[in-house]
Structure formats: structure tokens, C-alpha cells
Design a protein around this nucleic acid. Structure first.
Lengths: 141, 141
DNA sequence: TTGCGTGCAAAGGTTTTGCATGGCA
DNA sequence: TGCCATGCAAAACCTTTGCACGCAA
């Protein structure tokens, strides 16, 4: 299963290549399509959506939205990383999204599971607040 | 500011009434529109979207999506509870919102501030995951 | 050869926008 | 009276789907 599900096609390979080489960023169908077109190996959006659906279903890719806004974002899930300790911080002032990996934070999930009977999914969880740069700006307001 | 921003109109009042009386559930524009129409006080969807945008901006309402799928969900943020000192758990299966107050969790904000230079706003932050009841159900799948 | 994958275009659904009108302060 | 809010319809988007053809196994 997993990666080996279905046929191997040029389109599928190119899409996965792109997602993997951008696994530290957030992307979306528009960006993927633009990139593949620019590369000279265009892939129809319908195909991109269909492949992404499979990847999400197989757990290789994460789908989410920023602020609940329209337009899904996708990100390859690097299995070599400990996904349980990977959280996101989102600045409500400038919109920057920060990825943090931190042992201390990985305890959060364990604590909530143990004391509150709830299984947190860090890949879907975003901490909202204000980033360092914006805090400094606030002081000048 | 806050609630008092802008004019008071029948539409705005009805929308807020609905959101407040359903603050324990998640809703969406379609449901809101259907309800208000059934009540005999229909409100155009454009107005609903515009008012919701303001409410989200003013921090009175939360916007998010389930699994990054299309179609935003909205939920009123209950201010009578001191949301600054506790966190929320949201079950992605049944939609239940759980409030938790916990000393251990309050450390999270301090840790992130100290080690990641980011000031978390607990009232806007939601942990996504699966609640106890839904975990049990999953075992029967 | 078989049947999944792809591309295209059309359809479907959600959200936004322009504009004239309505209504709060 | 001056503006903001509303409603409607059109537009703008994003995503899905039907269908004929292409291609991996």
C-alpha cells in the first residue's frame, strides 16, 4: 500500500517530487499547477486533485486551510520526522506561519491524552498569537 | 469596540442570536441562512458573510474547516467564560468543543514565549483531535 | 488486453463584489 | 443628512465529475 498504490505515471511522480522537495512549505493546487507548467511538464488540475485526494487518504499528505479560509493547503508528511512534536504557530497580525519542533511540546499531546482523554492531532492544530516581530511593532503603536 | 462596532441592524442581531444560542455546535453559512429563512427573518447570504467576517475579525467568532475540506464552519466564542486562561479541544469527528483549564497547559504559553518568542492567544487556539467517545467508536470501525 | 490514469470542459458549490436602495445614528 | 448595511445578481474561485482517450502492468 502507501506510495505503491495505483500505477506509476509521469504525473504522479512529478507531483510527489514537488511535494517532497517542498515538504517544509505549505502549498496548494494553484502553486503546484503553476510550477509543473513552468517546468515544462504540465499536469491537469483534475489530476492534481485526484492524486492529492489519494495521498491524503493514504496519509502521505496533509490537507488543511489557514484560518478556515477557502482554498486547501497541502503538505507532504515527512515520516522521518517525529510528527507528534511538530506544531504550528500562526501570527494573527502578519499572518506568518511558523513551524516548531520541540520536545517540550510533544508532551502536550501525552498530557492531554492522559488527563483529558483526548487524542490531539498536532498536524491539524495551530497556535494563534503574535510573533516576535509583531510584538516589537506593537510597542511602537 | 467589539460587539458595538458598526450599526445595529435586525440582520446583525438575528445572526448573533443564532450564533450565541448555538455556541456549543459548529455551524456554517448554509445552516444559518436556512434557519433564518425558516424563522421568517431571512438574511441574504452576502450579508451573512460580511457580518461573519467582521465577527471573526473582532474575535467574537471562530472560523475553521473540518479536514481542510471546502466550506467554512463558524462558532461563537463565549466570553462569559474566561477563555484567556484555558484552551479548547475540538473533536474533528463529532464537532464537540471541550474547554479545559489546567495548570500544566497554562505553562505552554510560557514555554512558547520563552523558547520560541511567540505570544500565544489561548482564546484563538484550538487543539484538534478526537474525543474519548469518538475514540471508542473508532475501535468498532 | 484490461482497467486505471489523464486531460478537457462542464458542472457544482462556496464566497466575493458591484451597485442601487434601505435604514441607523 | 451622511454613511454604513443590505439584497440581488453576477462574478470569481475552488473543486468535482463525465467522458473519451492514453498508458502502465
Amino acid at each position: 500500500m502507501k506510495n505503491s498504490s495505483g500505477y506509476n505515471t509521469r504525473q504522479k511522480e512529478k507531483l510527489l517530487d514537488y511535494l517532497i522537495s517542498n515538504k517544509d512549505k505549505h502549498t496548494n493546487v494553484q502553486k503546484i499547477s503553476a510550477y509543473l507548467t513552468a517546468e515544462g511538464t504540465p499536469v491537469g488540475v483534475a489530476t492534481i486533485y485526484r492524486q492529492l485526494d489519494k495521498l491524503v487518504e493514504n496519509g502521505l499528505v496533509r490537507r488543511y486551510t489557514i484560518d478556515g479560509k477557502t482554498g486547501a493547503c497541502y503538505q507532504y508528511i515527512d515520516e522521518s520526522q517525529d510528527c507528534m512534536s511538530h506544531f504550528h504557530l500562526k501570527c494573527v497580525r502578519c499572518g506568518t506561519l511558523i513551524h516548531i519542533t520541540c520536545d517540550h511540546l510533544s508532551e502536550i499531546g501525552e498530557h492531554i491524552m492522559a488527563h483529558h482523554n483526548f487524542r490531539v492531532d498536532p498536524s491539524k492544530t495551530v497556535f494563534y498569537g503574535v510573533c516576535e516581530a509583531c510584538m516589537e511593532e506593537e510597542e511602537n503603536d
